[in-house]
C-alpha cells in the first residue's frame, strides 16, 4: 500500500466529514429544519450586531447551521443515489452493448446519442416541470440523464476488452453473457469507472444544486444547498452572508471529492493488471 498523498488525505478527511454530517444530521443539528428561532438574516460575520447563531439566520429567521446540516443530508443523498442509478444502468447497458453488439448496440447507442444531443439541464427542467417532483423522481431523472455519459465510457472501455483473447476464450468455453460481463469485463473496466464515479458525483451535486436554485429541484419544506442559495440570494444586495454559506459548502464538497477522485485515478492507472484495485 502506497502512502496517501497530502491532497488526497485532505480530500478524504473533508469528504468523510461531509458524509458523517449527512448521516447523523438529525443528531448534529441544534435546531429543527423549519424552526424559526431568531430575527431575519442575522449576520455573524461582518455586521455590527453579533448573532447567537454560529452561521446566522436565513430569510425567515431559521438557524442557518441547522439548515446547512439538513441540506447536506439531502444534497449528498440525492447525489449518491443518482450516481448509483447512473452507474448501474449506464455501465450494465454499456457492457451489454459491447458484448452483444449488432442491433442491440445500435439501438442503445443511437438512443444515447439522442439524449446527449439535448442539453441535460434543459431536458431535466422540461421533464421535472411536467412531473410531480418528489425525491425518487428527482433521483431517477438525474440518474438516467447522467447514465448516458456513463454508458459512453463503459461501452468504450468494454469494446476494447471484448476483443481480447481471454474474452474469446471464455466464449469458446461456453460462458454466458452474465459471466463475461461480470467476471471478465467488469474487473478490467473498474479503474476508469471508479475514477469516473468521483467526477459524476461532483456533477450530480452541482446538477441538483442548479435544479433547486431554479426552483425545480428539492421542494420545500425540504431544503438543499442549492435551494438555500436561492432563498437567501436577495440578501446579498444588503451585504448578508446567508447565501454565501451554502455556495461555499457546494464548492468545498466538490473540491474534496475531486481530490479523492484524482488520487484514485492516479493509483489505478498505474496498476496495469495484477494485484490491487
Amino acid at each position: 500500500m502506497s502512502r496517501i498523498p497530502l491532497s488526497a488525505l485532505i480530500g478524504l478527511v473533508m469528504t468523510g466529514a461531509f458524509f458523517f454530517t449527512a448521516i447523523f444530521a438529525q443528531w448534529l443539528a441544534p435546531y429543527g429544519l423549519n424552526e424559526a428561532v431568531g430575527d431575519v438574516w442575522e449576520n455573524p460575520f461582518w455586521s455590527s450586531e453579533p448573532s447567537e447563531y454560529l452561521l446566522g439566520t436565513d430569510n425567515i429567521g431559521r438557524d442557518l447551521l441547522s439548515r446547512m446540516i439538513y441540506g447536506c443530508q439531502i444534497t449528498i443523498l440525492l447525489a449518491t443515489a443518482s450516481s448509483a442509478v447512473a452507474f448501474l444502468t449506464g455501465s450494465i447497458l454499456g457492457f451489454t452493448a459491447a458484448v452483444v453488439g449488432g442491433w442491440v448496440d445500435q439501438v442503445l447507442s443511437r438512443l444515447v446519442d439522442l439524449f446527449m444531443s439535448l442539453p441535460s439541464l434543459i431536458l431535466a427542467l422540461v421533464i421535472l416541470s411536467v412531473l410531480n417532483v418528489t425525491l425518487p423522481v428527482l433521483i431517477l431523472v438525474m440518474g438516467l440523464l447522467d447514465s448516458t455519459r456513463v454508458y459512453r465510457l463503459a461501452r468504450a472501455v468494454a469494446v476494447d476488452i471484448v476483443v481480447m483473447d481471454y474474452v474469446e476464450a471464455a466464449r469458446l468455453r461456453g460462458e454466458g453473457t452474465k459471466w463475461i460481463i461480470f467476471r471478465e469485463i467488469l474487473p478490467n473496466a473498474l479503474s476508469p469507472l471508479v475514477a469516473e464515479l468521483g467526477l459524476r458525483f461532483i456533477f450530480a451535486v452541482l446538477f441538483i444544486s442548479t435544479l433547486s436554485f431554479l426552483g425545480l429541484g428539492v421542494q420545500p419544506p425540504l431544503a438543499d444547498w442549492g435551494g438555500m442559495v436561492k432563498e437567501n440570494k436577495d440578501g446579498l444586495v444588503y451585504g448578508i452572508s446567508a447565501a454565501l454559506v451554502p455556495a461555499i459548502a457546494i464548492a468545498v464538497l466538490a473540491i474534496s471529492v475531486n481530490l479523492v477522485a484524482d488520487w484514485v485515478l492516479n493509483r489505478t492507472t498505474s496498476l496495469k493488471g495484477g494485484r490491487g484495485a
Partner: peptide, 20 residues
C-alpha cells in the same frame, strides 16, 4: 463439443484475464 475442442493462443499475455 465445446469442452472437447479447446484452443491455445499466440499471445498468452492477452489470453488470460489479468485480474484473475
Amino acid at each position: 463439443d465445446l469442452r472437447e475442442l479447446q484452443m491455445i493462443y499466440q499471445m498468452a499475455d492477452v489470453a488470460m484475464n489479468p485480474r484473475q
